[in-house]
Write a protein that binds this DNA or RNA. Structure first.
Length: 454
RNA sequence: GGCGACAUAGCCAAGUGGUAAGGCGCGGGUCUGCAACACCCUUAUCGCCGGUUCAAAUCCGGCUGUCGCCUCCA
């Protein structure tokens, strides 16, 4: 909407527990969208909320005998740790629903004033769905479909609605629940109005991109559209992006099936970069199946990229020639066009990260076969730069911190080298095993001995 | 019942009209004292049936299979 800028809202998690790997998918996917837009020079105002008042949070609080606030604060902190471990950038703003109640009340009041909402006797406020003729435009549902497919089981409070399709904007407090004063009753906001308000406050009445999991299309996003467009009189979001689900053994993840994994659990077994790679290896709109085998495959794949990157760093550091030759300069421009070209083309085709990753692998192959000891430092640096640029956009970290080994380890490596020279391979292998037990893996490359952490 | 999505090699996964990217894995080989890394070679005619077209994984129809959503559930 505004030259050089993007306003983007992503529905965030309800913080009643550690986030699971299903929650991680939109975080990783839309963080990558953001990174690409920033890479292209856009200034991205990225807003993602935490839903910190909700039945599940309250239930958890009662279970533990603490306040709802204590629960939500705790899991917001844990969620931020997981996000950092997945290399998900913090949002420009992470609003909390409970801190935006005033704005929500104002929006609800406006909707009532315009005739789009109505309070009932107990103080509940409902949205009058039939008043908004475009209701269903996002989820491709029409009111007849909704009514014909209407479930026989009705929720409590149904009898006070004007129409079964109407949804809650404000609900009265129940015993022991957190509540805020409002013109209608002491209570708390409905879930949908929270996002409408937070999006409006931090991004404005119209935004460029609104994103979230595909399960949110109906009713959550449909209801957000109804609320925001009726309240503000403007188109709410220009683009909607929805990621498909992450399944386990082709089934929706759920606690009852026992196929529920938190990001924290996976992080104990794998570097979460592997999880990130795994998710980006498929298109965000395709359902993705999660399994241990697939994580193993992803780990191996990612390692290939990291190995290639480390080799380049090594070659650069040990390059004999410093400056690029004219031929190298020309070649660098050529590969930039080829690989960055393919990468951008993929990303600009609805963020086809799987295809973009293929471009990364092709560059790695190029580097492994065409870049060598005879390449100039500047040239190697240039190739590495291209690789790093692509990986940065994907949020994959390939740059390892320069790490110094302690003296004992250094000495062991030196001793092993001496043993190898003396053809005392038994001793050499013994040392290698010893280092392996310490978590250090040695590789005898043509360029010298390299090591890495297991 | 209503609405919608998907079906490509052992596995994951790109590819929406011109004769199948990439990765993992398997097997063979080169390099290495060995191992690892890397490199080379090898691994598919795209769920089934029919149609449109000079040409289809790609378009149309039918069938089969899997999955998602259907109002206080994130």
């Amino acid at each position: 909407m505004e030259e050089g800028k993007v306003r983007m809202y992503v529905c965030g998690p309800t913080v009643y527990n550690l986030i699971h790997i299903g929650n991680a998918r939109p975080m990783i996917v839309f963080d990558t969208v953001r990174r690409y837009l920033e890479y292209k020079g856009y200034e991205v105002n990225y807003v993602s909320n935490f839903t910190d008042v909700d039945d599940k949070i309250i239930a958890k609080a009662n279970e533990e005998g603490v306040s709802a606030e204590e629960i939500s604060k705790r899991y917001i902190e844990e969620c931020k740790k997981d996000m950092a471990a997945m290399n998900v950038k913090p949002a420009t703003t992470h609003p909390l629903a409970t801190e935006e109640i005033g704005g929500m009340i104002e929006m609800i009041q406006t909707l009532i004033d315009k005739g789009y909402a109505y309070p009932v006797a107990d103080g509940t406020v409902y949205f009058r769905v039939k008043k908004f003729s475009e209701y269903g435009k996002l989820s491709h549902k029409n009111l007849e479909d909704l009514q014909s497919g209407f479930r026989a089981l009705q929720v409590s409070g149904e009898e006070q609605k004007e129409d079964p399709l109407d949804f809650v904007l404000w609900k009265p407090k129940k015993e022991g629940e957190p509540a805020w004063p409002s013109p209608w009753c002491e209570g708390r906001p409905g879930w949908h109005i929270e996002c409408s308000e937070m999006s409006k406050k931090y991004l404005g009445e119209e935004i460029d991109i609104h994103a979230g999991g595909e399960d949110l299309i109906f009713p959550h996003h449909e209801n957000e559209i109804a609320q925001s467009e009726c309240c503000n009189g403007k188109q709410f979001a220009r683009y909607w992006m929805h990621n498909a689900f992450l399944n386990i053994d082709n089934k929706k993840m759920s606690k009852s099936l026992g196929n529920f994994f938190t990001v924290r659990e996976i992080g104990e077994q794998y570097d979460l970069q592997v999880l990130r790679f795994f998710m980006l290896n498929a298109h965000y709109r395709s359902p993705l199946n999660f399994s241990r085998d697939l994580m193993e495959a992803s780990r191996n794949s990612l390692e290939r990229i990291c190995n290639g990157a480390q080799r380049l760093q090594f070659l650069e550091k040990n390059a004999v020639a410093v400056d690029m030759t004219a031929a190298e300069s020309e070649e660098l421009q050529k590969i930039k066009n080829t690989y960055i070209g393919k990468f951008e083309e993929a990303m600009e085709d609805d963020f086809n990260t799987a295809d973009a990753i293929a471009a990364v692998f092709e560059l790695v192959k190029y580097a492994n076969t065409q870049v060598n000891e005879e390449s100039s430092g500047a040239y190697v640096h240039g190739v590495y730069g291209i690789l790093k640029q692509m990986c940065d956009v994907l949020g994959l970290i390939i740059e390892k911190e320069e790490e110094l080994l302690d003296e004992d380890v250094e000495n062991l490596i030196a001793e092993r080298q001496a043993a190898r020279k003396a053809k005392n391979f038994a001793r050499a292998d013994e040392i290698r095993d010893q280092l392996s037990d310490m978590g250090i893996i040695l590789e005898d490359t043509r360029e010298g001995v390299k090591w890495k952490r297991a």
